[in-house]
Write a protein that binds this DNA or RNA. Structure first.
Lengths: 145, 145
DNA sequence: AGGATTTAAGAGTATTTTATCCTAAATATA
DNA sequence: TATATTTAGGATAAAATACTCTTAAATCCT
């Protein structure tokens, strides 16, 4: 459901939020360090981060001591914001069977079932913030970031 | 979430179920007709159908008056059966952030939220049969098959 | 000013998914 | 038996996605 680019980006954003105790506008974290610590590809991650920077979720800074940092508090960045920037909202807008014109008025055979689930998934991603995610890191002993 | 191959296959299976009034072991329906009626690629559909035949969801027959037909009643074929054959169960088994080792005991930061949704989606696909899907065709006026 | 560090941007490559084509095999029917 | 019909299976092509590389630009530090 989420692209590889989106999975990486969410993990990385949670990681940045975790590193920045105050939450945002802390020191910049280098993309190299993030990729290394999370076991992700530096090339792929930095490419994907460019979108998050353009979208105003991240601020970047070049040169020594440069890197990226959050532009908002972790409590103000929702997972859906990241999904929207990296993957777009097609998943939440499109019919599960691929019909262009599927809608409540003009449903496909499983529209009613799926529309409900899709709405719940949307709710989940839009009600979960980076802060919620990092809370689980403290709450559970072995949480993977 | 579902691949194009899987969307096509589900639509086609619903269409076959709808055509076969008794439900299964009726006359064979040619793949050409299915593809034409649903606006799908004949080549792509027949390729994907090969998997459904091997998996025992469809029976095929070559030659004139040949085609495919259901091997079970529409009430006995669940959407999840089709998904499993075409796309596999990775979606339902894998961590949404891509962690190999993510589990209830060893969760990622959003494991608890996602595991619940994923389970509900699984429920939806495993409790919906072809018969349920075709019921909606009669129930709603403009349903898309 | 010069060199080291770090992201930006675009080009390039690889892999996967989607889609098509061709030939063979099966089989109904004339 | 010959022919037309229809799926099977392998090969290929195109498109989308994933991933890498190279060079440029910014900026810190000495």
């Amino acid at each position: 459901m989420l692209s590889a680019a989106c999975k990486d980006s969410i993990r990385a954003m949670i990681y940045i939020a975790k590193l920045q105790k105050e939450g945002y506008r802390e020191k910049f974290v280098s993309i190299h360090k993030i990729a290394k610590d999370l076991g992700l590809s530096f090339y792929f991650l930095s490419k994907n981060f460019q979108k998050l920077v353009k979208a105003g979720l991240l601020e970047s800074h070049r040169g020594p001591q440069g890197g990226v940092r959050l532009l908002k508090r972790p409590s103000e960045i929702r997972l859906i914001d990241i999904v929207e920037v990296i993957d777009g909202m097609e998943f939440f807008n499109n019919c599960i069977l691929g019909f262009e014109e599927c809608s409540d008025q003009n449903p496909c055979t499983i529209h009613n079932l799926w529309a409900e689930k899709r709405e719940e998934i949307y709710s989940m991603f839009s009600s979960t913030t980076l802060e919620d995610a990092i809370k689980n890191i403290d709450k559970f002993s072995n949480v993977k970031v």
